[in-house]
Design a protein around this nucleic acid. Sequence first.
DNA 1: TAGTGGTCTAGACCACTGC
DNA 2: CAGTGGTCTAGACCACTAC
Lengths: 230, 230
Amino acid sequence: MDVPTYLVLADRLEHELAAEPAGARVPSEHELARLHAVNRLTARAALDELEQRRVVRRRRGSGTFVSRRYDMTVTPQSALSWSQVVRAAGGSARAEVVDGPTQASPEDLGNGVDVLVLHRVGWVDGQRALCKTSWLATDLVPGLHEALPRHDSLFTALEQAYGLRPQRHALRAEITAPPPAVRETLDLPRNTEVVWIASRTDSERTGRTVEVTHSWLRADLFRLVVDLRP
Amino acid sequence: MDVPTYLVLADRLEHELAAEPAGARVPSEHELARLHAVNRLTARAALDELEQRRVVRRRRGSGTFVSRRYDMTVTPQSALSWSQVVRAAGGSARAEVVDGPTQASPEDLGNGVDVLVLHRVGWVDGQRALCKTSWLATDLVPGLHEALPRHDSLFTALEQAYGLRPQRHALRAEITAPPPAVRETLDLPRNTEVVWIASRTDSERTGRTVEVTHSWLRADLFRLVVDLRP
DNA sequence: TAGTGGTCTAGACCACTGC
DNA sequence: CAGTGGTCTAGACCACTAC
């Protein structure tokens, strides 16, 4: 036997699943083993392989499901909105504001500025997929908590509700192990990596920095692509 | 049992290995199983875990060895040399020119320019770790094959041997599955991802593009960090 | 040739999820 | 509650590497 059984199975499954929509149920390990007359561990190895290939995602106790990956393209000039990326690819995206610890703010907002901390969680295709912590200059965004739900994203709120002419710049990006708070917020299984992106939004109108945001995105759901062309 | 056996073993091993140098031998699966009185598959699961954490690397038939990871920081202005990164972290780095297919060149070099194709392989800590394909404007680098071995890198050759005042710009970076040619060149096992970086080097002296390079780096050996600050 | 990691079988018990 | 994925055992044969 040249190609191992589990890889034959994995390739075959991947091919079959290509036609399925994200979230579709994949046969369970026991069922797969029965169907193909192999040991459960062999069927499991095939699913392990597909999980590594980011084709499926598992939820203990509930099952294995087709997964999709979105290309998150970051450029120095702007950090593209994740919700745009997801919706453009036909997925569903929504965000909600959550409580969280008040963390020390980065220094980009300026000294002595009163800082508002905002924690948000993003849902993609019905799953918690990312979280963000934003630090904002309080005086530039009065009543933000009430204004935010009326807009698609924080960025459009800054634009439309406050007329700040926001300019978003990406600062730094890397793929890393999630900090404990993020792991808990997103309920990440072991071994899940995240894409970390730091960005800053300046206001063209006031000439000040409005917002600094740290984003953590499940790396199995988002693929980091960096475009550095000027 | 709260924490599974294989994780206890993995954490313990990781702690022990932290003091070992890159390349140090790790106990084999059979030996680990015997030492800790567990099944071989349990010992194997622990090593699987450490491989995913990029703490060890396996070579079938020869053993498991301590691995190290280097941060490859890319900025829009310049793509830092991998050999600098490795040597600064105390690792060993060398490059060699190899034969390879002549591939269609990107269009950045200009129309009608005679193009020289250069394939190089990089060795890190004694292992093939990356490969590069460069397209160069032939007329700007006469006798490059003879000049190259006298320099640390292609970049310094352009600088010192040809006085081109080179300026390197990173263009694009992503983490992806290796193309078959790269998989073969680097003898990559299944499931190994690579960091792909496209960069362009312009000559300040001539005002022309000297070189376009595509680099593929083992993602288990190099961690992509992107710094987008101006 | 001896030892390594890679694959595979036939079981078993568990924690967790959804109904 | 039944079904899911997660862990674990005790075996086995194989391809590959180093000596």
